[in-house]
């Protein structure tokens, strides 16, 4: 009997493990769950999400470009400041977008992590 657990207790155990994991995750990253609360309501409207992500991305690239251009202008470092800072700005833009979207879809993250943990066991 113990070798073949019946599905009912298996489900209960899974639910318990799920709850424990959620608790652990929220304890580990209180920042994300706190921020995520209000954002889920805005995520309902896809256009709002699109605006949010695109503006985050554009702003990152713009700031990088502006910084690089200003550095070139002040120090006369040729095109190098612009080249390097456009790339850094691009990276910052990706960071921005990942942060914004990560805060918007915390539930999906939970599901993925639970599945991964199950597979590992």
């Amino acid at each position: 009997m113990s070798e073949k657990p019946d599905p009912k207790t298996d489900d209960a155990a899974l639910a318990a493990r799920n709850a424990a994991l959620r608790e652990k995750l929220s304890a580990r990253s209180p920042q994300i769950t706190e921020d995520a609360g209000p954002d889920t309501s805005t995520a309902k409207s896809g256009i709002a999400q699109a605006w949010r992500l695109s503006s985050e991305f554009v702003a990152g690239v713009l700031v990088g470009t502006g910084l690089g251009w200003a550095i070139d202008w002040f120090f006369g470092t040729g095109p190098w400041g612009l080249i390097i800072f456009v790339l850094l700005g691009f990276a910052a833009a990706v960071v921005n977008v990942m942060r914004a979207s990560g805060q918007m879809a915390p539930s999906r993250l939970h599901i993925h992590q639970t599945k991964d943990e199950d597979r590992a066991e």
Partner: peptide, 24 residues
């Protein structure tokens, strides 16, 4: 590098904040 990217990310906040509202 990461610090620089974080600084740019921080500086882009007021831009994205203002652009989002105005563009909408």
């Amino acid at each position: 590098i990461v610090g620089l990217i974080e600084v740019i990310s921080f500086l882009s906040r007021p831009i994205s904040l203002s652009v989002r509202l105005f563009a909408n």
